[in-house]
Simulated assay, not measured.
Amino acid sequence: MAAVLAGDQRAFTQLMRRHKDSLYRFVRGYVGDASEAYDLVQESFVAAWHALARYDRQRSFGIWLKRIAINKCRDWRRRRAVRAFFYDAEDIDRPGLDIAQPIAAAKEREDELARLDDAIAALPANLKEPLLLSLMGEMSHRDIAEALGMTAKAVEVRIYRAKRALAGALATR
């Protein structure tokens, strides 16, 4: 990290290689779309590069990077909600629109994964973030607590609640 802070782009490239897979898994789980996740991972690395001057040497680079990715995912979710509002408003006014028409799944496995993605996406951020950091970010409760600014016990409780909420959501669908 000292080389990166000194401006060594090759050292930053090495850090990117080391963290890209776990960061992608986390972001993919958060947004539920592979191409959006790829873009958000790139945005996270670019933001990290530009924010190196604000990096706290006392923190782990991986945790700091996950925090940046969380913020990118939150921004993406807000932008998506705004776009959906305007897009849906236009669709509702279209003559002959049948809103209740179901969308057929191509394969049963894809349908199950889509249900899981939807259930995860429906979780409130305070439950979704610790769950995804734990499962896909491969982080300890202590590291998650540091990244999210809470206690390790709070992380444990939120992960438990997220799993219960997912089980309930998947059981009712």
Rank of each mutant, 00 (worst) to 15 (best):
V27K: 10
R74H: 09
V82E: 06
S140R: 06
S134D: 08
D111C: 00
A119C: 00
A11D: 06
Q101V: 10
P130M: 04
D21E: 12
V27M: 12
I159S: 06
G149H: 01
D21R: 05
L131R: 00
A147S: 10
K128Y: 08
M139D: 04
R74P: 05
D91L: 12
L123A: 13
V46L: 05
D111Q: 06
A89W: 04
A121H: 15
V4L: 09
I70C: 10
P130G: 06
A125H: 13
W64C: 05
G29C: 10
D33W: 05
A154P: 10
T151H: 12
A125Q: 14
A122D: 14
M1L: 08
A51N: 13
P102A: 11
A114W: 02
R25I: 06
Y55M: 08
P95I: 06
R80E: 15
A37W: 02
L65G: 02
F85D: 13
F85A: 13
G149V: 09
T13L: 04
L116A: 11
V82D: 01
F86S: 05
A119N: 01
S22Y: 07
A152L: 01
D111W: 02
K163N: 10
S60D: 10
I144S: 00
L116T: 06
I92W: 01
G29W: 09
G96N: 04
L127G: 14
S140E: 04
A165P: 01
A119R: 05
A3V: 09
Y30T: 08
I68K: 04
V31P: 08
R77H: 03
R54E: 12
K20H: 13
V155L: 09
L5T: 07
A169I: 02
F45H: 02
R54L: 05
L166N: 03
A84T: 03
R10C: 05
R10V: 13
E112L: 14
S22G: 09
R74L: 13
Y87V: 11
Y55K: 05
D88G: 10
